[in-house]
């Protein structure tokens, strides 16, 4: 009961920011000569207008929820894991590498896919821990370390796609040879959506919510995030917890990479992360560590992403408008949060 009430109150507080963002977006659209009502309607229809569309939204939701769940862990530990994009990419590379090794082996598909999932998690976690090691050992702020590692990861994926993993006779940045159908995560009939993508996303969100609210480990991560020095002096092995937070987040990013490779693209492409790392950062910023909100807010963002595709088709508007809308939402919510804090600080 109390929990539900708290959730409602939180929703209410965010509504102001959402409305603010919608108003600002409407203003922009009017300037661009488009009807805001029509734009929002098209986005809504594009996201929820049919079962196929809804399925497409969930195709985005799966990896986005995985990434956001991971980011909640690093946020709880006070870390800006900007390196998340690179971690998705490394996860996808791990998955692709293991699939390439095993696709001709006499193993059942589920076994190959399980190995690939594990490889993706390990690759993502390892890449994230590298950010962590740079911070803990080298004193490199995780934002800069993460940016650097993102560049390295994208250079690596380009090199693999144009080089060792190129399609025979072809030198193209459009991607590797698609994997055989048997190694695709099965899609629900008539859609591109894999049950496993949603299931993995839900499981990750649930596990992270449980971790942060009910476990001693979660409490310790939060302590490290809120006051690293004090947590250390209170006897929490703070450095180890930082690394652990990175590792957990990277592992979930690796799962997102697994979903992208095996359920969405069925091959490795340069933009395999689809920008979900940064989108996940936006979602995490909005919900501010409240795990219960990951699922709905991620649906919202996924819906804008998918619905935005209708803008060029129906209204000849640039679909990057959906990115603008997402950015405005984040700003709107943060702005109204800030206003409220100011108001609370000086009544």
């Amino acid at each position: 009961m109390i929990r539900a009430r708290v959730l409602c109150q939180q929703a209410g507080r965010q509504a102001g920011g959402v409305i603010l963002a919608l108003l600002a977006a409407s203003g922009l659209l009017l300037l661009a000569g488009a009807s805001p009502v029509e734009v929002f309607r098209q986005i809504g229809l594009g996201a929820f207008g049919s079962v196929t569309r809804l399925a497409d939204v969930l195709v985005v939701w799966g990896p986005l929820a995985l990434v956001t769940a991971g980011l909640l862990v690093t946020f709880a530990a006070g870390l800006w894991n900007i390196g998340i994009e690179g971690q998705i990419v490394m996860g996808a590379i791990g998955v692709t590498g293991s699939l390439r090794l095993l696709q001709d082996a006499p193993l059942p598909a589920w076994a190959v896919l399980s190995v690939a999932l594990a490889a993706g998690m390990m690759a993502g976690a390892a890449w994230a821990m590298l950010s962590g090691l740079l911070k803990t050992v080298g004193g490199v702020n995780e934002i800069f370390g993460g940016l650097g590692l993102n560049f390295i990861a994208s250079a690596l994926i380009l090199w693999l796609i144009f080089g060792p993993w190129k399609r025979p006779g072809i030198g193209s940045m459009s991607g590797t040879e698609p994997f055989p159908d048997s190694l695709w995560l099965p899609a629900l009939a008539g859609t591109r959506l894999s049950f496993w993508s949603v299931a993995l996303g839900l499981a990750a969100v649930g596990a992270v919510a449980l971790l942060l609210s009910r476990t001693v480990l979660g409490l310790r991560l939060k302590a490290v995030g809120r006051n690293f020095r004090a947590a250390y002096l209170l006897g929490v092995p703070a450095w180890r917890h930082l690394l652990l937070a990175f590792g957990l987040c990277g592992a979930l990013a690796g799962v997102a990479g697994f979903v992208q490779v095996t359920a969405v693209y069925h091959r490795l492409i340069p933009s395999i992360s689809s920008g979900y790392g940064f989108l996940g950062l936006m979602v995490a910023l909005i919900i501010r560590c409240r795990a219960a909100w990951v699922a709905p807010v991620a649906v919202f963002f996924a819906a804008i992403t998918i619905g935005g595709i209708q803008l060029p088709i129906a209204l000849q508007l640039d679909s990057s408008l959906s990115g603008v809308l997402q950015g405005l939402l984040v700003l709107g919510v943060l702005f109204s949060d800030g206003l409220r804090h100011r108001a609370a600080a000086r009544p």
Binding site: Q9, A11, G12, R13, Q14, G16
Partner: peptide, 10 residues
């Protein structure tokens, strides 16, 4: 109160 209002709006 603002929470409840916000809920209604949402």
């Amino acid at each position: 109160r603002p929470g409840a209002w916000g809920m209604r709006l949402l």
